[in-house]
């Protein structure tokens, strides 16, 4: 089980995967918006998206868990 964490504070702009979806290493999971920039958050490990902890528009702080990959 891998926790995917926000690399910096910002708001969730786009979810690029859905729960239950298979993901490859380095695949983007969500795209945050921060400092007017698109900030892609990728998973280092492959697997299945077990849980998405955020929805579009949510504010996240640095190190908040965004998703869980199994």
């Amino acid at each position: 089980m891998t926790e995917i964490k926000a690399s910096m504070a910002g708001s969730v702009w786009k979810l690029t995967v859905g729960t239950g979806e298979k993901v490859e290493p380095d695949q983007d999971i969500v795209i945050l918006e921060s400092m007017k920039m698109e900030i892609p958050i990728a998973t280092e490990t492959g697997g299945t998206v077990k849980e998405l902890k955020v929805t579009e528009g949510d504010f996240v702080n640095e190190a908040d868990v965004i998703a869980i990959i199994e």
Partner: peptide, 10 residues
């Protein structure tokens, strides 16, 4: 590196 944290300086 715009790919990581938008290239913002920390």
């Amino acid at each position: 590196q715009p790919r990581v944290k938008g290239g913002v300086l920390f």
